[in-house]
Design a protein around this nucleic acid. Sequence first.
DNA 1: ACGCGTATATTCGTAGACGAGTATTACGGA
DNA 2: TCCGTAATACTCGTCTACGAATATACGCGT
Lengths: 215, 215
Amino acid sequence: MAKRRKVANLLALAVLGTVVQRPMHPYEMASMLRERGKDQDMKIKWGSLYTVVGNLEKHGLIEATETARQGARPERTVYRITDAGRAELVDWVRELVSTPEREQPRFEAGLSLLGALTPDDATALLRHRLSVLEEELAGQRATLARLGAGLPRLFLIEDEYDLALREAEATWVRAFLAELADGTFPGLAQWREFHETGRLPPEFEEIAERGSTPD
Amino acid sequence: MAKRRKVANLLALAVLGTVVQRPMHPYEMASMLRERGKDQDMKIKWGSLYTVVGNLEKHGLIEATETARQGARPERTVYRITDAGRAELVDWVRELVSTPEREQPRFEAGLSLLGALTPDDATALLRHRLSVLEEELAGQRATLARLGAGLPRLFLIEDEYDLALREAEATWVRAFLAELADGTFPGLAQWREFHETGRLPPEFEEIAERGSTPD
DNA sequence: ACGCGTATATTCGTAGACGAGTATTACGGA
DNA sequence: TCCGTAATACTCGTCTACGAATATACGCGT
């Protein structure tokens, strides 16, 4: 079992990743993260940032250096990474890269309860998802091409990976939609029937009672 | 903006998904979830379960019916879904299905700091990841085939989706590894140099200083 | 030279997530 | 029949995440 990290929040990893470059104060870390677009989705959570920095310090992964004060403002504490911090950073990245981990994406949670919608509703919504997805993909491809011109690939692999996976998602949704649209999806009739009559077709009752994956 | 849910935890969605079938007490919900393998990764978090059930009740999405007591044990409260709960369930699933959302998978976080490892280390770790992934995929394919025989596809789409995405991940990792192995990955020399000399090649210094994605 | 919007920089309170503990019952074997 | 182990069913306390509030500095339009 991966020994659990003293500071588990992924934001802490990002912080270590910035402060390894040069000493910084928290707000500066946030700005650097923001500049890198590391945040676009996960918008900087100020609360967490200071908690996490505090914890990193408590566990000796970073340490305060100067605590300069400018004008009458609260003093900005500048942190520097320690050897332990550097070690933790490498170890953490090694773990993340080497070990696939089952995550629970929200879409999957939705899919697992897709039966709660009517087939027609599900179809319409998936179509919507697909079109948004396609738009976003176009944008991502463009950005990647633009940045790829001036930056080493190494700085962009996360984006390449993200793009690849989202493309796979789009492909999957398209295939699923096709089956729904042309009626070849097996069980479509029963699914529809269930929503019209409000009852499960008899052959499913026992199935619904127990779980669907009796491992 | 998606109005935020009164109860945001995804576990709450799962709970609604079980209790919509018939009234249940918390422990029973957990068992049903476990049976469905909904947990294998996200092992049931007992603490959260009762908090979440409490919150669902507080917001009128479920309500207590009988509070039977057997023997001297603490009374088991049985909950039933309300109309509001049913509405919330459908609305939530609709949202999850219709709207792609940027998530932050752990692997991606690792990739974005891949530069912290040496190319050789990264290669070895990715190979490890790939082999674990392949093994898991074989397992998933087998399970899916086995279950697919006795269950309607609708009950298994999350698994199909998950399989498809993990396959895409494996494919991507394979391609990346190939580039690293045959040395065609651009910037490989500089990456290696950085770890040998401890300094960035001059052409990257300015890049490292500002962010990599000046959106 | 004076507001005023925006960027800088951090603190604090609270809701929620979760691990670990607790207590009872059922069951199977020696 | 007696004990140990597994399953049932929950409670509690801690630790964390995060939103929202706060307060000052700076640039620029008028």
